[in-house]
Design a protein around this nucleic acid. Structure first.
Lengths: 113, 113
DNA sequence: CTGTTATATTGTAATATATTAATATATTAA
DNA sequence: TTAATATATTAATATATTACAATATAACAG
């Protein structure tokens, strides 16, 4: 079942995971799942400095996670692959299960033994 | 469809993604998908110094991705959640599609526009 | 207790990453 | 051309991560 693969392929996968390993970038991805957005719209959603958003978009672009389309003054960003959304969903689920496990553990510890 | 959530939840998700953002850790995860393994077995598979493997296992442990079980002298590691394997599969698929896209682009460039 | 094997932790140097402020570029309107 | 708006890049700094070597701990055999 597991995809055992070459050292080099693992490096590429790690690169891709690094791309997801930032709260702002995850937020950008979630916003873009609702459709393409301009940089300005993203800046407003994230309430972060424009340079920061632009930097994160460059990282997402370089790693092929989003694509950019210029229309006049604006640049519209969108996801390159709907599977990226699926990946985010699974991360979401794993996190929820972790929280649930921790909750149960906490309950057991508090309720004596 | 997207799971828009609080800033704090995005931080946790990013933490989880960081855990996956290393080639050696991804390899450990793939090995553990085949069942639990001792540290020594992992050291042999990875051909990395024991301290390095142990460090990565600690990171995976701290973030709730793997769990450890001591049996005598050995410590057996296993995945805490089978969904972690699913997440790796999706990353695998996204990477394959990226490679495919790049291949097509390269073909187009070489075959003269 | 001593030695041995398996595993974990810590300090450190090298490297990578994010943030910020400043500056640069691109597009359009006037 | 100049001004205005949208976006991108760069340099400096702060922070985080990794690998490696050395050391520590844990379990057990004798």
């Amino acid at each position: 079942m597991a995809n055992r693969c070459s050292q080099e392929l693992y490096e590429f996968k790690a690169e891709l995971c690094k791309t997801f390993a930032d709260a702002k970038r995850l937020q950008i991805i979630d916003i873009l799942r609702g459709g393409e957005r301009t940089v300005n719209e993203l800046v407003q959603f994230l309430r972060a400095p424009q340079a920061v958003v632009s930097r994160h978009l460059a990282i997402l672009r370089d790693r092929g996670v989003v694509k950019a389309r210029r229309e006049g003054v604006n640049v519209y960003y969108s996801l390159t692959d709907s599977k990226i959304g699926d990946a985010c969903d699974i991360v979401h689920q794993i996190l929820l299960e972790q929280i649930e496990r921790n909750r149960k553990l906490a309950d057991r510890l508090v309720s004596g033994l």
